[in-house]
Design a protein around this nucleic acid. Structure first.
Length: 848
RNA sequence: GCCCUCGUGGUGAAAUUGGUAGACACAAAGGACUUAAAAUCCUUGCCCUUUUGGGAGUGCCAGUUCGAGUCUGGCCGAGGGCACCA
């Protein structure tokens, strides 16, 4: 018998599917649609194991849904604008476009070898003019709707990448990609008014039942809604400042106020610009904003002004006004009132500058003499030392009551604040979508007329210039609109804009005049199941939600507010890390072992290798496994099987060579089994001895798998499949009714198909069964066992298992137990106090 | 500091949602087949007992319950997110 030759067989089926348009889909209103989407890759060169896992998970689902009769949209494309192309181009003296396109070609080939059920006719690439021209039109539409604006403000400047970063791209004060310490710089930038949708973005989360809780909480925290009020504080002093507006969530602690603090960027700072001490202080603040040390220490520093603020609830109380490093200009109004007793930051500040500390809230179990020392009290309790507020319950009554009082006296207003800030989309880079705007000499803004779109990227470009390459393109920059000489915007869009609508483009990828066709979009959207890495929990997913809402804004025809109905975030693929004696990373290929404990360098076995913890595969740590080589050695089906088998898909999975080999062996074993079944079917056997058992097993299997599918328990499904093999392999040597065997084996192969499609197709072909199989239905009749095991417990401890007929009564069971030796000895010499009987499950005897 | 998630054999993990803990797989040990190896198959898997059997056991400590991996409270540990957000 021949071994299963995956090399020729996989190639054969891939060719067959392609030639027979297996994966092509069209709008078909008679069929229910299912849009299955995996996050599209950045074409960095080659696919990595993370892609293999992501796309295997998606492919299994897409194939199953298609077998279940859905019209399945399962497309793939390329997130192909971005900095790495520019860097690589500079290093290799290649054009970013050529570098990107050659990578796409390589990776597309690799994906095809995985046997994914993708409709390649829908392939899109965000760097193509065909894609970004629509994006430019969207930009102008959003501008017309008032969702895009330009403003000068402080930006996060990455000195290495020479570009602006969004707040989301700054991690621990460093650029997300370069790791360089981010600087503050004032620039004119384009912004998307994402904060306009704060409320919708937040409340929309409640309706996303098929999203992981974790992602929803992360977005919720990011949006950061807080309820409080704004208060106008009257100001006295020698400067023309009469009022300062503050936002607070704790107006009920107003009587505990002992200072007012504003940000160094607060409008009143303009009166201090000639004050050398203030300038020094401000420099100090900008330093503490970035160094990790100061964040860890959290030292509060202030600069005292000559101003005083008046407590709106007690006109007699005047408190000093400070500039303080812990007050941020871009949240609230850049000003706070300080209540040291009930806010740790305020307390630290008050202690440092010897300010009053008045306790105005006491916990329920303390009396009115309760005093704050070194720890602020922020918990619930009762208001004290606060005149007419005394006795109010914190927080249920106190906050609302105080706001009511402030509102009635016209001193303040109820206010909801969000942490979410507008999305700065300008990037000083070449390889991105040009922003379709222009300016006259006075800086007035002119959108590029729609019929002049697209604004194409110039092909010949000097990438070795400093800063933004487009800025040096003097000829390209010049433009004439309506007879006026203008200068183009030279910034390009953040690449997160590209990925904020690609899922809509997939619905009608060839639509020429507009980014999408309404009919197609309405049929396919929203994405029913979106699958990708959890690292996009905030950035990409929040932006995509915003962009969808923005397209829907002031456009009744659109009708979609949430792009992703279901979301699944898969875990990463991990591998042990290795270092040599010089602390240099080594790749798994350079390493050998004899006993699985001691590792040494293959080329030089005298050199030992230090084994580090298992971490997600990354080029920098060299702990990667090349998917192409693995597919070459074991075949696509084996890799697909391994990607699903070892861990639940939402958790990280450990790469294991042995696990990989086991999957390969499984397919080989199953091939032998298939051969045995094929031979058995040649003889006309009629024995019904095992028929019922096979029927039961198959139907229970399908039922189990259906349940596990809903919960994305793919690893359990693989275990179910191993069980199936074990079961069939035992049964095959016994007499079996051929008809029953064929009918059920066909169903089992149908279940294998979405997971290991080449193998299942080949098995079906061997048995002369049409390889276009449907997802098998469950015959509920066979889910019920008429015999079952009932657990017998004595005092809650398992003592015996009794096999008996379904539906047995307590009395009948007790009669059986009289002859059960294991139970008898417990019952005989004791008193039965109580019996707990759960029908068809368990009997618990309580004895003394 | 705040928020979220998770702790089950040597390892990756299952457990119908309160009812047989460890399915399935990897690794290990022993055995079968073989001249031998590879491949394949079988057995074992903590403690006591020769066996039938008994005991302990899901991070730790309590609690609820006839019965807890699952529920409640406290503690310990790991991972992730946010971080002067007023």
């Amino acid at each position: 018998m021949e071994r299963y030759n995956f090399k020729t067989i996989e190639k054969k089926w891939q060719k067959y599917w392609e030639e027979n348009n297996f994966n092509k889909v069209k709008l078909d209103k008679n069929k229910k649609k299912f849009y299955c989407l995996e996050m599209f890759p950045y074409p960095s060169g080659k696919i990595h194991m993370g892609h293999v896992r992501n796309y295997t998970i998606g492919d299994v689902l897409a194939r199953i849904k298609s077998m279940q009769g859905y019209n399945v949209l399962h497309p793939m494309g390329w997130d192909s604008f971005g900095l790495p192309a520019e860097n690589a181009a500079r290093e290799n003296n290649l054009h970013p476009k050529d570098w990107t396109e050659s990578n796409i070609l390589t990776m597309k080939n690799q994906l095809k070898k995985m046997g994914l059920s993708l409709d390649w006719d829908r392939e899109i690439s965000t760097c193509s003019e065909e894609y970004y021209k629509h994006q430019q039109l969207f930009f102008i539409e959003l501008y017309e709707k008032g969702l895009v604006y330009r403003k000068e403000n402080y930006v996060n400047w990455d000195p290495v990448e020479q570009t602006v970063l969004a707040n989301e791209q700054v991690i621990d004060g460093k650029g997300w990609r370069s790791g360089a310490i981010v600087e503050r710089k004032k620039l004119n930038q384009w912004f998307f008014n994402i904060s306009k949708f704060s409320e919708e973005l937040l409340s929309g989360l409640d309706k996303l039942n098929n999203w992981p809780l974790k992602v929803k909480t992360m977005q919720k925290n990011w949006i950061g809604k807080s309820f409080g009020c704004e208060i106008d504080f009257k100001i006295e002093g020698d400067l023309p400042v009469s009022e300062i507006k503050c936002f607070t969530t704790r107006p009920d602690t107003l009587f505990g106020m002992s200072f007012l603090a504003v940000s160094v960027d607060h409008p009143i700072s303009k009166y201090f610009l000639k004050n050398q001490e203030f300038i020094k202080f401000r420099e100090e603040c900008s330093k503490t904003g970035t160094t990790e040390e100061s964040i860890a220490l959290g030292e509060k520093i202030g600069f005292k002004t000559s101003l005083f603020a008046i407590n709106p609830l007690d006109q007699k109380q005047k408190v000093p006004v400070y500039f303080a490093n812990f007050v941020l200009m871009d949240y609230g109004f850049g000003a706070v009132f300080g209540c040291p007793a009930h806010d740790q930051r305020d307390l630290d500040f008050a202690i440092k500058y010897s300010l009053n500390i008045t306790t105005v809230v006491r916990p329920e179990d303390e009396d009115d003499k309760f005093k704050i020392k070194k720890e602020a009290y922020t918990g619930p309790g009762i208001i004290i030392n606060s005149n007419y507020l005394n006795g109010l319950k914190v927080p249920e009554e106190s906050i609302i009551k105080t706001i009511e009082i402030l509102e009635s006296k016209k001193l303040g207003k109820k206010k909801i604040n969000f942490r979410l800030k507008d999305w700065g989309v300008s990037r000083q880079r070449y390889w991105g979508c040009p922003i379709p705007m222009a300016y006259d000499r006075d800086g007035n803004v002119f959108p590029i007329p729609k019929n002049n779109l697209p604004v194409k990227l110039p092909d010949n470009i000097n990438l070795n210039s400093k800063g933004n390459p487009l800025d040096g393109e003097t000829e390209w920059k010049k433009i004439k609109i309506n007879g006026k000489d203008l200068i183009r915007e030279t910034d390009t869009l953040d690449t997160f804009v590209d990925s904020s609508w690609y899922f809509i483009r997939f619905c009608s990828p060839n639509s020429k005049d507009y980014g999408f066709d309404y009919e197609e979009m309405k049929y396919w959207m929203p994405v029913d199941q979106y699958i990708g890495g959890v690292e996009h929990a905030i950035l990409h997913l929040l932006y995509s939600r915003f962009f969808t809402m923005a397209l829907n804004y002031k456009n009744d025809k659109f009708g979609i507010t949430e792009p992703f109905q279901g979301l699944f975030t898969q875990g990463m693929v991990c591998h042990e890390t290795y270092k040599d004696e010089n602390n240099k990373w080594l790749s798994p290929e350079e390493i050998d072992t004899k006993d699985n404990k001691n590792y040494f360098i293959k080329k030089d076995p005298s050199k030992k290798v230090m084994v580090g913890p298992s971490e997600s595969m990354s080029k920098s740590k060299k702990n990667t496994i090349d998917p192409e080589k693995i597919i070459e050695n074991y075949g696509a089906d084996s890799v697909r099987l391994f990607m699903l088998s070892d861990s639940p898909p939402e958790k990280d999975v450990q790469w294991s060579d042995q696990g990989m080999v086991a999957c390969y062996k499984f397919i080989q074993k199953f091939w032998i089994l298939n051969e045995k079944i094929k031979n058995k079917l040649k003889n006309k056997e009629k024995s019904d001895k095992n028929s019922l058992e096979i029927l039961k097993f198959t139907n229970q299997l399908i039922n189990k798998i259906n349940l596990n599918l809903e919960k994305f328990n793919y690893n359990v499904i693989i275990a179910n499949i191993y069980e199936t093999y074990n079961f069939l392999n035992k049964k095959i040597d016994q007499p079996i009714n051929n008809e029953i065997l064929l009918e059920n084996y066909k169903k089992i192969l149908a279940i294998l198909f979405p997971i290991i499609p080449h193998f299942a197709s080949e098995c079906l072909k061997e048995l002369n069964i049409n390889h276009r199989v449907e997802w098998p239905p469950v015959n509920k009749k066979f889910l019920i066992d008429d015999e079952l095991n009932i657990v017998i417990q004595i005092n809650g401890k398992k003592r015996s298992i009794v096999n008996c007929k379904k539906g047995i009564t307590e009395e009948d069971l007790m009669n059986i137990l009289k002859d059960d030796l294991k139970i008898k000895k417990f019952i005989d010499n004791s008193k039965n106090i109580k019996r707990i009987f759960i029908k068809d499950k368990l009997l618990n005897l309580i004895i003394k």
